[in-house]
């Protein structure tokens, strides 16, 4: 089903583009027919593809690509950052950089590199609710890294509560909603 949809979509896209490129004054009938036919194929293939993707989204829940999965993954980052805050004051600039790098290149990268999948599966509204805090948290952690790399360890450590605050902001609504449901 998905492959047929892809075939229709890509084929239609090609035909419609060829037709569109042939538009001139006066309008050639063959170009117009190709354009309309191609556009219909794009529509049909596109709708079929959307349905296939939505069906796949349900399967992907097991792969962590669900609201629940995202909330848990971000909560995992929050735990990492809490651990970092606890030990940060005893680290020098280089050690702090390495610790931050582990989080940035690890859990942040794992979630961040799948942003398009999350957007597709969760839809824009839900995705945005989580991603706002996630993105600000990631940027602030990068800020802390830069400061640590420059040897400004005190300033770098001072940024970390802001990172945690934003990461917690990302998941707060989910857990609040969950709590309400349980009650």
């Amino acid at each position: 089903m998905k492959y047929i949809a892809q075939l229709l979509f890509i084929g239609g896209f090609c035909v419609a583009t060829v037709g569109g490129a042939g538009f001139s004054d006066p309008l050639e009938e063959s170009a117009l027919m190709m354009f309309i036919g191609g556009l219909v194929l794009v529509l049909v293939g596109g709708i079929m593809l959307r349905r296939a993707v939505h069906a796949e989204a349900h399967e992907k829940v097991a792969d962590g690509l669900s609201e629940e999965g995202l909330a848990k993954a971000i909560e995992g980052i929050a735990a990492d950052v809490r651990g970092l805050i606890d030990e940060a004051s005893g680290l020098d600039g280089k050690q702090l950089c390495t610790r931050i790098d582990t989080i940035l290149q690890g859990s942040f990268f794992d979630i961040g590199s799948r942003n398009e999948d999350y957007m597709r599966v969760l839809g824009n509204t839900v995705y945005t609710r989580y991603w706002d805090g996630f993105a600000v948290g990631e940027r602030l952690l990068a800020r802390s890294w830069s400061m640590a790399a420059d040897g400004a360890v005190a300033e770098a450590v001072a940024e970390l509560p802001g990172v945690l605050k934003n990461i917690e902001r990302a998941t707060r609504r989910h857990f609040q909603a969950e709590l309400t449901t349980i009650r």
């Binding site: 979509f9 896209f13 419609a16 583009t17 037709g19 569109g20 490129a21 538009f23 001139s24 004054d25 309008l27 354009f35 191609g38 556009l39 794009v42 529509l43 596109g46 709708i47 593809l49 959307r50 398009e116 597709r120």
Partner: peptide
């Protein structure tokens, strides 16, 4: 007065439909 408006509109329609349906 020879602006290829038809080509722009054709491209825009394909772009809007494909983008709304897929990405």
């Amino acid at each position: 007065g020879d602006v290829p408006l038809g080509k722009y509109i054709a491209g825009a329609l394909i772009g809007i439909i494909a983008s709304l349906l897929i990405s």
